[in-house]
Amino acid sequence: MNKKILIADDEQNIVISLEFLMKREGFDVVVANDGEEAVERIRSEHPDLVLLDVMMPKKTGFEVCQEVKADASLATVRILMLTAKGRDTEVAKGLALGADAYMTKPFSTRELVDKVRSLLEQ
């Protein structure tokens, strides 16, 4: 069975590129355009991994991450946070909130794919 990946970002062009990339790598892709939608989709779809943007309307990626990690039923969901704000504090904050990995935009597609694969193999 294919692994399912949720892409949560409010930037349409980024969503398009990530969706194309993940599909090409053979994953099933679900999309959410803001924080609330992301939480809903995670609960309903139980993705194996979430590519979670930090700066999203309605709920930030941090809030989403916190919520997911607080929910025992979602313990298997891996979170890879993506942010355009490259500050160290942001990285530290995300990891402290339970994110499994963190990448800053713009990212290398190859590295992203490698990171996604390694997270899913754990």
Binding site: R24, G86, K105
Partner: peptide, 14 residues
Amino acid sequence: LRTPLTSIRAFSEM
């Protein structure tokens, strides 16, 4: 700045 760059890089690389 990074947000558009992200799309540009991702598409270009792919």
